[in-house]
Design a protein around this nucleic acid. Structure first.
Lengths: 244, 244
DNA sequence: CGACCTATTGAATTCTATCAATTCTCGTGG
DNA sequence: CCACGAGAATTGATAGAATTCAATAGGTCG
């Protein structure tokens, strides 16, 4: 049995699609070009063309856009098993940057690899397309959060969503999860100032809902937090692609 | 020559991909199930499963999500040539609603139609996937706008983006465009209150930048507006899918 | 130890929402 | 023809939310 069967991506997709041996082999091939990255050096640069995509094997990264005036907006965080830069290779140019938050391991995927994989196994293509749609649904939910929730709800919703995603890949539970993000990351993701992030976290802590401390998110009262955030995980719990 | 060759979708895709006769015929088949809708009755309902997708032939619609507390966030507006609900059929359930803003014409596309079209003409599949990526890039830009721009910049950027999109399908120019949206639509899209939308529009008008009046957006000083919004249309001007 | 990053808190300011009231347009029915 | 009501746009006043500026403290690393 090859080690690929336990990769986070494979693990995630297999929750929805039963792959055949040859399909697993194709997945294996996609993982062959392993590379390591450290914080401070971007995997993908906004505005660059000829980008590769990556499958994140270990660690956390964030996708963000910077504006001409220097402010930045984090669009999404990716965790092990997530695909990075799929849109970049489709559009042949990257509209965003990708930055490692901790030291990471990622498999580089060239456009040729992907086209080859897609033509070999249409089922895999469909599974990846489905995954991309799920990611887009997450971005949409993020948009709603920033547009129509106040800072406290935004934070609560964000911490809960991250928890739900991490739980899917075995890195979290209802009790909490390890989280390498700084308050500056939260600020850039939620469209708040770092100062206000700090105040909101204090309020949530003082209200006995959740703590964010020493790289760990701890849910003190999960149910009440869900109530505050009006968190509905439906958009994360899809029934999988239409593969028999 | 069939009339399909002048449909907005065909027109848009042909700007990037040269289709063969059989491929045009497949596009034609996708348009066969024409339907009409009127404002007030949603095409797609949030939470519903077994949805169809649509190709918008005429008129404007918006995609939105409503939250438990009743507030709504418009995620995107669609104009002729845009695809609606592609994600809904992929995920097999809809995470958002779609509402006609004016009376519209749309071609219903069943999941079977799409799978058939994809297997018949991979190039068309790639073109549609590319288009979906472009739409996602737009949602991302929208996210950045709400997260990191103040109300005035948000409005300016939004009006410019809409103008750029409409120009692509021949419905607008640097001078302006017809626009059936109300200030309430703008508010729900930009994450502002309707009252504040009104104030912002007044300011932009008084500053001689743009007017929003009687269903028409008129750019008074396009260049200065671009400067205010820090509008960079790069994310709309892609080189097309990787088809030879 | 000092440099640097992160977290924390206070005070003043700016931005945006909410509440309330008015005007305008347009279509409907009397 | 006009009164009426609905939806849309407009404006003022006030309250609330979040930002900015400024300062301090804790931790880590060389």
């Amino acid at each position: 049995m090859s080690s690929i069967e336990t990769s986070p991506l494979t693990r995630k997709l297999r929750a929805f699609v039963a792959f055949s041996g040859p399909e697993l082999a194709v997945l294996d091939r996609l993982h062959r070009r392993k590379r390591a990255f450290v914080p401070g050096r971007d995997l993908v640069q906004q505005g660059q063309s000829e980008q590769a995509a990556y499958i994140l094997a270990e660690g956390w990264v964030c996708s963000y856009k910077v504006q001409p005036d220097g402010t930045r907006q984090i669009v999404d965080f990716q965790i092990p098993g997530d695909f990075l830069g799929l849109r970049s290779i489709l559009l042949h140019t990257s509209d965003h940057s990708v930055e490692p938050i901790v030291s990471i391991q990622a498999a580089e995927v060239l456009i040729e690899d992907l086209l080859e994989a897609f033509s070999d196994t249409p089922r895999l293509a469909m599974a990846i397309l489905w995954m991309a749609s799920r990611d887009e649904a997450m971005v949409v939910e993020h948009l709603v959060g920033i547009g129509r929730r106040d800072a406290e709800q935004r934070m609560a919703h964000f911490l809960l969503e991250l928890g739900a995603r991490l739980t899917l890949v075995g890195m979290g539970s209802r009790a909490g999860y390890d989280c390498p993000l700084t308050q500056y990351h939260l600020a850039d993701a939620l469209g708040l100032s770092a100062v206000h992030v700090n105040r909101v976290l204090r309020k949530l802590r003082e209200d006995g809902l959740v703590t964010f401390r020493d790289g760990r998110v701890t849910f003190l009262d999960h149910d009440r937090l869900v109530g505050l955030a009006q968190f509905d995980p439906a958009y994360l719990e899809h029934t999988g692609p239409l593969l028999k």
